[in-house]
Write a protein that binds this DNA or RNA. Structure first.
Lengths: 102, 102
DNA sequence: CAGAATCCACCAGGATACTG
DNA sequence: CAGTATCCTGGTGGATTCTG
């Protein structure tokens, strides 16, 4: 988990979404709800498997996404945004929009 | 400057505002336009002078803030948001708001 | 006052290999 | 398939000192 400093709300938000791949993961999950691990991998090929796992774990810990594990062989998991995570939509779109026109 | 990866607009935005202190600096400059170096220091006491200087330099390089240097002794500088930087206001407020209620 | 320079510790993250 | 485990390196950021 990232370092401990004084926390104003902006910082808390950024801590939760600005991990190296978090914003992209959230963005992908907004357009592709219910993604499997490997699907996310393909959607974000520059992100290593290790990093993807780490970031997903943090996002889950922060309650932004939830993981469903199907007890089948071979393993199958699905990731989706929680309600809390979905509330980020306008914010993420704001970031997207500003980045697009600037 | 931060590392080079594939750039979707969100990432570009986050790169520019999510340096360790950048969002806070921007936030402070939204409420306190035209701040001197030491004033910012006092507004963000947990940020070291070194870091403040580095972050300000990057923000300036990215065209989010501008620096005015008055040719006086002792030195006097003032930092303020550029137009481009000011456009971040709704985004920053979105981050702030989400962090506040979540 | 407003920084720049230097030194150093730590850890984020890549590459690779292994597993239930 | 969906992850761990381990090893290793470059970069981030703190502390301190110097300067125009």
């Amino acid at each position: 988990m990232t370092k401990q400093t004084i926390q104003c709300p902006i910082e808390r938000t950024l801590k939760q979404i600005s991990g190296k791949w978090k914003s992209v993961i959230i963005f992908r999950l907004l357009e592709h709800p219910r993604c499997r691990f490997n699907e996310l991998q393909k959607l974000i090929p520059e992100c290593s498997r290790r990093m993807l796992a780490l970031q997903l774990k943090e996002l889950e810990h922060d309650g932004l996404i939830s993981k469903t594990v199907y007890p089948v062989v071979p393993p199958k998991t699905e990731y989706s945004l929680t309600e809390r995570g979905k509330k980020l939509k306008p914010v993420i779109e704001g970031l997207q929009e500003w980045g697009r026109i600037n």
